[in-house]
């Protein structure tokens, strides 16, 4: 597979791309917290939060529809919230039959369901925007600055680096399996489920051992360059005046969104 399938970053020189990654992480998290705090059916707040998102989209030069198109990813999960349609007592809106049950959608249930979806949909889009305008290594630096323990950021950095190498290896294994999964005409190919699971497990075991051995070689390469148990990093980011200004402005705007919802 080509690395593009994993890269969510889009090279541009927009206002958002130029911000310090800490600012972007912080504002994204505050935005998501704010969405989660909004009460059900706070329509004006939802709309103003959406405007905030659109403004961010515009500042990213990626186009208004960029995050919209990619936000479908969270849709399937909406299924788990479907029960609130019927379970929250309120005025019945419509009743229909599903298999053996009579289901009644209530107004309160509908409001809650739609509110959950909107909150999620806005939040997911902001998270999509975050990785589209921030290179992942910069995101890791931001986490370091935000006091995430070094051992975790280091594991994440390694994961990001070797994600591409190991998924390539998996795809080679899968291709090798497929090219040998021949079938004789008229006969069902492959053994039973247990057999197929065993093949998959062998692949996982194989991949594990290769990864294990690779980690030993990497360790040697690290030792050769002076690693002795403690990792040092240079942090290329420094907060500029603009970064502070943007943070303050974003927090003020999000507070207004909250205020609108509480009035």
């Amino acid at each position: 597979m080509h690395f593009d399938a994993f890269d969510r970053y889009h090279e541009k020189s927009s206002f958002l791309h130029g911000l310090d990654p800490r600012v972007k992480v912080l504002v994204t998290v505050i935005y998501i917290v704010s969405n989660t705090l909004l009460p059900d059916a706070a329509w004006y707040s939802f709309v103003s939060a959406w405007i905030f998102l659109i403004a961010a989209n515009l500042l990213s030069q990626l186009g208004i529809e960029y995050t919209f198109k990619r936000s479908i990813i969270a849709l399937p999960f909406a299924l788990v919230a479907i029960t609130v349609l019927f379970s929250i007592p309120g005025k019945p809106i419509s009743t229909f039959q599903f298999l053996m049950w009579d289901l009644t959608i209530t107004d309160a249930g509908l409001l809650r369901f739609v509110s959950i979806l909107i909150r999620s949909w806005l939040s997911v889009q902001m998270a999509i925007l975050l990785v589209a305008v921030t290179r992942f290594p910069d995101l890791i630096h931001a986490l370091e600055h935000l006091r995430v323990p070094a051992i975790l950021t280091t594991i994440i950095a390694f994961l990001y680096r070797y994600l591409f190498v190991l998924t390539d290896e998996v795809l080679r294994l899968i291709r090798a399996r497929e090219s040998r999964s021949a079938a004789v005409a008229g006969q069902r190919s492959g053994g039973g489920v247990a057999w197929r699971a065993k093949i998959a497990g062998n692949m996982a075991g194989q991949l594990f051992l290769r990864s294990y051995e690779r980690s030993e070689r990497i360790y040697n390469a690290m030792l050769s360059r002076g690693y002795s148990g403690h990792l040092y990093t240079l942090n290329p980011h420094e907060m500029k005046q603009r970064d502070y200004f943007v943070t303050a402005f974003a927090i003020a705007a999000i507070s207004i969104v909250q205020l609108i919802g509480r009035l």
Partner: peptide, 19 residues
């Protein structure tokens, strides 16, 4: 440290193996 890092990538990649 490198072992855990590569193992994290391993788990990520192994999740792509299906049957």
């Amino acid at each position: 440290v490198p072992l855990m890092g590569v193992m994290a990538a391993f788990i990520f990649a192994a999740q792509m193996i299906n049957f």
